[in-house]
Design a protein around this nucleic acid. Structure first.
Lengths: 187, 187
DNA sequence: AGAGTGGGTCAACGCGTGTAGAGTCGGAGC
DNA sequence: GCTCCGACTCTACACGCGTTGACCCACTCT
């Protein structure tokens, strides 16, 4: 019938990707502890042992699932920093599953916590560089944690009060608050 | 020697409290999944079976450990709402262990998530009532999630950038941002 | 066509967990 | 002073987990 025409390497990458996608989804949904290798294998329609064969152990699977490309943009000025942060809230306010997986587990899994800290520190550094004032670092940290709180509340806790607002409404309401932190003198 | 003079009921309450304190501490530190009944019993210097006898099962133990008195203060005005939120950050920015235990597990434990949602919704409602404007509810939600992000970043993730600042510095830096949300017209 | 590689499965092990029930023992009550 | 009660412990069970090693079988290569 239809030619499968899948080389070995292709098949391998395809199932490896299926496993990784399933893992990301489950980690994002339930966190590290509540996600079992068996569940991942089931979602990927694969034997649990194959997951081990590909990724060694659960921890490494998590590490791979959570790995995400991180584009670093240069700093310009306070207003641009604010808009860049607000732009972080993608269309329909959804982060990539890999990031959600990491965030979901950051409070209960040591390695996820480390990854989250590093990622947040980078963002603080980046934002801080484009802010004026001596306490720029603290204000950048506050701006970053504001975005963190918003993401946690909206994506992970799924708070009604946030879910019933559109992205634009949230951005519009939040902008003044971030501006107040970005340029404290000019209020 | 020294009179123990502990009645049965007293002894019982004392050990029950030791268990509950140990549970709170461990839940706050490691979250629900990583905290074992055996570890709680060990920390309370008690047999694991006694924990079961007192609290029935792990879930109920968690529920008891997380239970916290919730004072509801009446709403007055936007400025008071801001100061009330800022006042939430207690001395040295530490929440009661029961609250930390709940927060630690809110992303990975369904029941903790529900409790967190309810608690946050109450706060949104309360703040919202003292804000002007039609989108008061959204702005109140944003103010609440800002505090949530700060608590998560400071208490649970222990971000350096926040830890190296004093409570007063944080309050001072954050106030304008909250004010911008509380009274959007008067900027 | 035959050998061999490698993607994939099967069955099982060891461990730690939450949990249950029988048992112990010292102080309280008559 | 004997008995009972209740705080507390001991032992064990069943289950689900991460993980392992042997195995199978289709496709590729010569």
């Amino acid at each position: 019938m239809t030619e499968p025409a899948l080389t070995r390497a292709e098949r391998r990458r395809r199932t490896e990707r299926r496993i990784l996608d399933a893992a990301r989804e489950l980690f994002a949904e339930r966190g590290f502890e509540r996600t079992t290798i068996r569940a991942v294998a089931g979602a990927a329609e694969v034997d649990p042992a194959l997951v081990m064969q590909y990724f060694g152990n659960k921890q490494r699977l998590f590490g791979e699932a959570v790995r995400v490309a991180r584009p670093t943009e240069p700093a310009t000025g306070p207003d641009e920093a604010v808009e860049h942060l607000l732009g972080t809230l993608g269309v329909k306010m959804s982060l990539p599953p890999a990031s959600l997986a990491m965030l979901r587990s950051m409070l209960t899994h040591p390695e996820a916590a480390t990854t989250a800290r590093e990622s947040l520190s980078r963002q603080v550094e980046q934002v801080s560089a484009s802010l004026p004032g001596e306490d720029a670092r603290l204000r950048a940290a506050l701006m970053t944690t504001i975005m963190l709180g918003l993401t946690v509340g909206h994506q992970l806790l799924e708070l009604e009060e946030l879910r019933e607002a559109s992205r634009e409404e949230i951005v519009a309401a939040l902008r003044p608050a971030l501006r107040a932190l970005a340029a404290p003198e000019a209020h």
